[in-house]
């Protein structure tokens, strides 16, 4: 990948991730080198337990790195304050929202918090961004509902809308399509793709939807025991990296249909 430096939103350099408990260190993955270019839709794929979540948690500053560097917008992640980071990166997490009375509009408007005044009053500009986010995710019809009344698919769109209202170039989503039916999975993937193409968002998601990822992602981050392989989706399919990622005596990769098929014997 040869991108010019100003186009790189996120970059890791020799990154080690894992957990530290007192003096014991549990390294999950090491020497990770990867970067995200502006306007790209990137999927992070890998087996369960390989460290995808740990990587996302480290990139989003939820847990500290063990070594190496993470740069967001050419600045070291550690040097950014939480509020500065909130203006550069927004998240969609897998955790459930605690039950409360928020409406969809109020929930999305919370995405404006990094910009609002001391008590959180929405300015005209804030309202403009909230309306835009609602429009970008096509959820005008449910904006005045309580979020507890939504289906899983609708809720996920609302959470993406909230991230959009935060107006960051980078959006990171942790398994955004888990628990959704195929219709909603495709819808969410297409929505994310459109956001990258039409609004120059840079989106990194972790996923197990290999089939969808291979069809829609611009680039892939493939995580295996040795580290991380990054590249354009097409080239990674061609050079066999995708095939190697999950290939076992149970499944084989079929390059024509871009999916893994179950071995017959």
């Amino acid at each position: 990948m040869k991108e010019n430096a100003t186009n790189i939103i996120l970059k890791t350099n020799d990154l080690n991730i894992g957990y530290q408990h007192k003096k014991q260190v549990f390294c999950v993955a090491s020497h990770l080198n990867a970067s995200l270019a502006r306007g790209k839709f990137v999927c992070l794929l890998g087996k369960n337990g390989i460290g995808k979540s740990t990587l996302l948690r480290t990139l989003t500053k939820v847990q500290p790195k063990l070594g190496g560097q993470i740069q967001i917008d050419n600045k070291e992640l550690e040097t950014l304050s939480t509020i500065e980071l909130a203006k550069k990166m927004s998240l969609v997490l897998t955790e459930k929202i605690p039950e409360n009375n928020l409406t969809v509009y109020e929930l999305i408007a919370l995405g404006r918090q990094p910009y609002t005044n001391w008590i959180g009053t929405l300015s005209d500009e804030d309202k403009k961004y909230v309306d835009l986010a609602i429009q970008q995710t096509h959820i005008e019809g449910i904006a005045n509902k309580k979020y507890t009344e939504l289906s899983d698919g609708q809720l996920q769109k609302v959470m993406i809308s909230r991230a959009l209202a935060q107006n960051t170039t980078l959006i990171i989503l942790d398994e955004p399509t888990a628990h959704l039916d195929i219709q909603n999975k495709v819808e969410i993937y297409k929505l994310l793709k459109t956001l990258c193409e039409n609004y120059q968002k840079t989106i990194l998601i972790s996923s197990h939807e290999i089939h969808l990822a291979l069809q829609l992602a611009d680039q892939l981050w493939l995580m295996n025991e040795k580290g991380i392989i990054t590249g354009n989706t097409k080239s990674l399919i061609e050079d066999g990296s995708v095939s190697n990622l999950f290939a076992s005596n149970l499944v084989t990769f079929d390059a024509n249909s871009k999916q893994f098929v179950i071995n017959t014997n």
Partner: peptide
Amino acid sequence: LLSIIKPLNSLLLGENYAVSLGVN
């Protein structure tokens, strides 16, 4: 209490979302 009204609202989304919105 006035000084924490705003972070309390973001806590409605859970702690991780609150931090991602810039809450200390």
